[in-house]
Every structure is written in C-alpha cells, then in structure tokens.
C-alpha cells in the first residue's frame, strides 16, 4: 500500500516536471534560435539606415521608428479612456447593473480576435473617417485593442490605494474630484504605468490589426505625418517572408527584425512585470 502511494506520486511528479521542461525547452529554443541567428545581422547600419536596393541592403530604421510611433500613439488613445473608465468604476461606485454591463463589455472586448480589430479599423478609421491606411488609423485601432488591458491595470492600481486615504481627504473637506486628483491618482500612478508598459509591449508585436490599417511593406524614407502609412517591425517580418523576390537576403533581414522585436518586447514586459511584483509585495497583495 505504502509502496503504491509513493509510486503514483513519483510518476505524477515526473510527469508534471517533464511538462514544465518541454514548455521551457520550446520557448527557450525559440529565443535561442532567434538570438543566435538574429544578433549577427544587427549592425549600426541595420538599425539606422533605410532599406535599399529592393530590400536586399540597407537597414530597417523606418520600421523601428514606425513601431515606436504606434506604441506611443495607441497609448495616447487608450490611456485617458482606460483611466477614466477605471476611475468611474472604482471611485464613483455606480449601480451594480452598470458595473456588470461595463465589466462584461471589457472582458468581451479583451477576447475579440486581433484580426477583427483590424476589420473594424479598416471599416471605421480607414474608410468611414477617411484617415486612410495611416499611423493615425493604426494607433486608433491598436488603442481600442489594448483598452481592456489598461482598464484592468488601472482598476487594480486604484483598488490598491487604501480607502483610509480617500476618507481622510474627504473628511478634510476635499471634494470627490479633488480627492481623486490629489490623493487617489498619485497613489495609483505606478500601477497604472505598469499596465501601460505591458500594453506597449503588446502593441509592439501586434500585426494583424495593422495589416490593413497602418502598415506598408517598403518605404524609402520615414513617415512624415500621422496620416502617412508606415513600416513596422512585425509587418515587415511577415512581408519579408511572403513577398519580394530575393528570399535569400530577405530571411536574414527578417531574422534581424525578429531579434529586435523579441528583445524590445521581452525588455518592455520584463520591466513591467518586475515593477508589478515589487508593487504587489509593497501593498501585500
């Protein structure tokens, strides 16, 4: 009896241990391959030059710049909306039915496939509002896509501000808005920032929503206005692998782009996750 007991435990534990190992092996080999084959491609010229000679030479600077534009722009769209929504839900204690309605819409919005956001952006921003395939359309589309993340992170941050701080402020004769502005928001800023950084990481890697709203395969220069289309790293990788006539050169460039993108996203999200862990342990969550 006792033998059996420890035997099933041994088998079971080795099973879940191997699951963990396989997971780490797969993810690790992805990072390894891209790092090993991509790092060699990176050079000063690759990072700073525009593409030349039908994408066989030069660099990918416009794609890097375009990626940053989209990261920044989508946050500008999502941050005010997301924080306002979180403030309303957490600070103004609306009726339960309203809270539930908004919460359900946030959860469902979070689950919409990214390519569907692309369709929405195409129909609404590109065509209906006439922004065309542009940085603006891309930022709006991506902004709506990351809105649920920003809301959840802001809510978590607002809840972490002790209720006693709100009470102290109100008891001193501050209005509710003053309390939010001077006590609640400053207290929740680090948490909101974490959510923003995580969302930025997500925006950097998203491709499907910008396929038909912002991205272009090949540009000889940099985007000049919010209404011009732009190269972006993830779309560029896709285009290099599926279009063009010099695959032998293009794969190398794609490795370089994938490496930059991977480093960018991993750095951004490690930063955010480490920050979040520090905050959580500080508030004892």
């Amino acid at each position: 009896m006792k033998m059996n007991k420890s035997l099933d435990q041994k088998i079971g534990f080795s099973l879940i241990f191997s699951m963990m190992l396989i997971t780490l092996f797969f993810l690790g080999s992805l990072v390894y391959f891209i790092a090993v084959r991509g790092a060699g491609i990176i050079s000063w010229q690759f990072l700073t030059d525009v593409p030349r000679e039908a994408m066989t030479k030069g660099g990918v600077a416009p794609a890097i710049v375009g990626t940053f534009y989209l990261m920044l722009g989508s946050v500008l769209v999502a941050l005010p909306l997301g924080v306002a929504c979180a403030i309303y839900l957490c600070e103004y204690s609306p009726k339960k039915t309203i809270v539930n309605l908004i919460r359900i819409s946030i959860n469902n919005l979070a689950g919409v496939p990214s390519v569907v956001f692309g369709l929405f952006g195409l129909a609404v921003f590109v065509k209906f509002f006439g922004f065309g395939v542009s940085i603006l359309s891309g930022c709006l589309t991506l902004g709506i896509m990351v809105l649920p993340n920003i809301i959840s992170a802001s809510q978590e941050a607002l809840i972490a501000v002790p209720q006693s701080h709100r009470e102290a402020s109100l008891a001193l004769g501050a209005t509710q808005w003053q309390t939010i502005k001077k006590v609640v928001l400053p207290g929740s800023l680090p948490g909101i920032l974490t959510g923003v950084i995580l969302s930025i990481g997500r925006v950097a890697g998203e491709t499907a929503p910008i396929l038909f709203t912002a991205g272009t395969f090949y540009m000889r220069g940099f985007p000049k206005s919010p209404l011009s289309e732009t190269m972006v790293l993830p779309y560029h990788i896709y285009a290099l692998m599926t279009e063009g006539v010099h695959p032998e050169f293009q794969v190398k460039i794609a490795y370089g782009c994938a490496f930059i993108l991977l480093i960018l996203v991993l750095l951004v999200s490690s930063f955010a996750i480490i920050l979040r862990q520090q905050q959580r342990s500080r508030y004892g969550i």
């Binding site: 701080h165 009470e167 102290a168 402020s169 001193l172 004769g173 209005t175 006590v183 207290g187």
Partner: peptide, 20 residues
C-alpha cells in the same frame, strides 16, 4: 457636504497620513 466636512473634522482609527 464639502462645507460641512470643513466644519466637522475627523481623526481616524488608524493613522492615515497621505504618502506626501
């Protein structure tokens, strides 16, 4: 109510200074 709370101050159970 804001005016009222200026006339009637309050000190709470647990000290709750703002993080300022």
């Amino acid at each position: 109510v804001v005016e009222l709370r200026r006339r009637v101050g309050m000190v709470f159970q647990k000290p709750n200074p703002f993080p300022k």
